[in-house]
């Protein structure tokens, strides 16, 4: 099967007076139609940036894509004009954000905002678009949608706003949904509702979802595959059951051990040190200064993703030792 989205060897740098921060350092991601892929990492790992690169939303003044390609439906996205991206955004690729309040215009009613994009992307008449908006609000389980279309964003709760955003993202028939920490700002009971809704709706419409989150448990509950990012690299990727149960990369292992576990009263294992400065990242494997299995090669050469079992890839020099 052809991947819907294929990112290969993507390098992105940010210019600043102190030099170039290499924020993405050769990312490979494949997302297949109808699939949920989790992109997991701590702050500064570059996961949100990856999504912004796909949508052509990197700040033109300071961000430089130095290498790599982003293929969507078999066509290259890098180098396209802003106008071409505008045709894609919201129509073929949509995004939902952590803070739904910021993504909605506070001075327009929900209905008006939905109608606008439906008219723009689907060429519907005003009346058709209104009916369509109500239909989509129903689809995301909003009770009495006729009332909600007449409300302003501030009148809705956080969970409701996220539902509205999801409806807007999907209403124009996007094949790809980029969800950037969509439930991080929500309470846990509401998070559960939204996650289930996302899964249900995307499955029903056949939408592919790239779910960006720092929460491994959220990925465990929603995604088929997961890619773990550290400091601008993907260090491990594979089926969720494999990666979470038999993690191979020391970083993934450490991350899992750092989670509080109800079954053990023992001290949590933390990862020593902190995320390195991207202006002068460590040579070789970027995780090596915090890794307890470090060896000579790790300090010198960057490991590439290699297959360890079916669909399970790890970028770690220690894998050589197993062979």
């Amino acid at each position: 099967m052809e991947p819907l989205l294929k990112i290969s060897d993507l390098h992105v740098g940010f210019l600043s007076y102190a030099g170039v921060a290499r924020v993405l350092n050769g990312i490979d991601i494949e997302l297949f139609p109808g699939e949920f892929l989790g992109l997991v990492g701590e702050s500064g790992s570059g996961k949100s940036l990856t999504a912004n690169a796909v949508l052509g939303l990197l700040p033109a003044r300071s961000a430089v894509i130095s290498k790599g390609s982003i293929m969507f439906e078999g066509k290259e996205l890098i180098g396209r004009s802003e106008k071409e991206f505008q045709g894609l955004r919201g129509k073929k690729i949509s995004m939902v954000f952590q803070e739904p309040m910021n993504a909605l215009n506070p001075s327009y009613k929900i209905g008006k905002q939905m109608v606008e994009i439906l008219k723009l992307h689907k060429g519907l008449s005003n009346k058709e678009a209104k009916a369509e908006a109500v239909r989509w609000l129903t689809q995301v389980h909003i009770q009495n949608p006729e009332k909600v279309v007449k409300e302003y964003p501030y009148e809705l709760s956080g969970g409701m706003r996220q539902r509205v955003l999801l409806a807007m993202a999907l209403s124009c028939g996007s094949q790809l949904l980029l969800a950037d920490e969509p439930t991080t700002a929500l309470d846990v009971t509401i998070q559960a509702q939204i996650l289930r809704l996302m899964k249900e709706t995307a499955d029903q419409l056949g939408t592919s979802v790239l779910l960006i989150t720092h929460d491994l448990a959220v990925v465990a509950q929603t995604c088929q595959r997961v890619a773990v990012m550290y400091c601008g690299n993907i260090v491990e990727s594979g089926p969720v059951t494999k990666v979470l149960r038999e993690p191979r990369h020391p970083y993934t292992k450490a991350l899992l051990k750092a989670l509080p576990n109800p079954d053990s009263e023992t001290e949590l294992q933390s990862i020593p040190g902190s995320v390195p400065n991207l202006l002068s990242p460590p040579a070789g494997c970027r995780f090596h200064p915090r890794c307890d299995l470090v060896k000579k090669t790790c300090r010198e050469l960057r490991p590439q993703l290699t297959t360890v079992s079916e669909n399970h890839y790890v970028a770690c020099w220690r894998e050589e030792d197993h062979v």
């Binding site: 998070q191 559960a192 509702q193 996650l195 465990a220």
Partner: peptide, 22 residues
């Protein structure tokens, strides 16, 4: 509340038993 916590084990699915808002 306890059921809403996503479990790290993919085989323990999320049970959503509450609808409605706070």
């Amino acid at each position: 509340l306890l059921q809403s916590i996503p479990n790290i084990n993919p085989e323990k699915p999320l049970l959503v038993e509450v609808e409605g808002e706070i």
